Simulated scan of single mutants.
Amino acid sequence: MLKSDEVAIEGDRITWLGEKPNLQTTRAIIVIAEENKTTPIKRRSPSKAIAV
């Protein structure tokens, strides 16, 4: 049976973000959700040729 739980991993430490399941031994598949790292938006400015 497959069950999903959300955890945070820092180094080799796992923190359960919900209720910790009652498990002694288990196997897990880890899917890593990368944060969306977008580049900063470059603000456009008017040409100096039209500056008043």
Rank of each mutant, 00 (worst) to 15 (best):
A33E: 13
T39V: 14
A28G: 05
K20W: 02
T26S: 10
I30V: 09
K48S: 11
E34Q: 12
S45R: 11
E35C: 06
L17K: 03
I9D: 00
I29G: 03
L17S: 00
Q24N: 14
T15N: 00
I29E: 03
E19H: 06
S47N: 05
A8Q: 06
V52D: 15
K3S: 12
E35T: 12
P40S: 10
E10V: 14
M1H: 07
L2C: 04
I41R: 00
R43N: 03
N22L: 14
K20I: 01
A33I: 15
K48L: 15
A33P: 06
G18S: 08
I50L: 08
W16G: 03
T39I: 15
I32K: 05
T38K: 12
G18C: 04
S4T: 05
I9L: 04
V7F: 02
S45D: 11
D5Q: 13
I29C: 04
T25C: 03
I14V: 15
I14P: 04
V7A: 00
L2W: 03
R44E: 15
R27F: 11
P21R: 02
E34Y: 11
K48W: 10
E34N: 12
I29P: 01
A33D: 12
V31G: 08
K37I: 09
G18P: 02
I41F: 01
L23F: 10
E10I: 08
I9H: 00
E34S: 14
A49I: 05
I50G: 03
I41V: 09
R27Y: 11
T26H: 10
R43K: 06
I29V: 08
T25A: 03
I30E: 05
D12C: 06
P46I: 08
I9Q: 03
I50R: 02
I32S: 09
I29K: 09
T38E: 11
S4W: 01
P40A: 11
T26E: 02
I14H: 01
P21K: 03
T15P: 00
L23W: 13
D5M: 07
D5H: 14
A28Y: 10
L23I: 09
I29Y: 03
S4I: 05
K42P: 02
R43A: 06
T15I: 07
V7M: 00
Q24G: 07
L17Y: 00
D5A: 08
K20N: 08
R43M: 04
P46G: 04
I30Q: 02
G11V: 04
D5R: 06
D12A: 07
W16K: 01
L17M: 00
I41M: 03
L23N: 05
V7D: 00
N36S: 13
I14A: 02
A49P: 02
P40K: 03
E10M: 13
E35P: 11
I9M: 04
P46N: 10
E10R: 15
P46T: 07
I32A: 09
A28D: 05
T38Q: 12
D12G: 09
A33H: 11
I14C: 06
P40G: 14
A8E: 08
E19Y: 05
L17C: 00
P21F: 01
K42G: 07
L17G: 00
T38D: 13
G11D: 05
V31R: 14
V31S: 15
T15E: 02
V31T: 13
I9G: 01
E35Y: 09
K37W: 02
I32Q: 09
E35R: 13
R13D: 13
A33V: 14
P46F: 12
D12T: 12
S4Y: 02
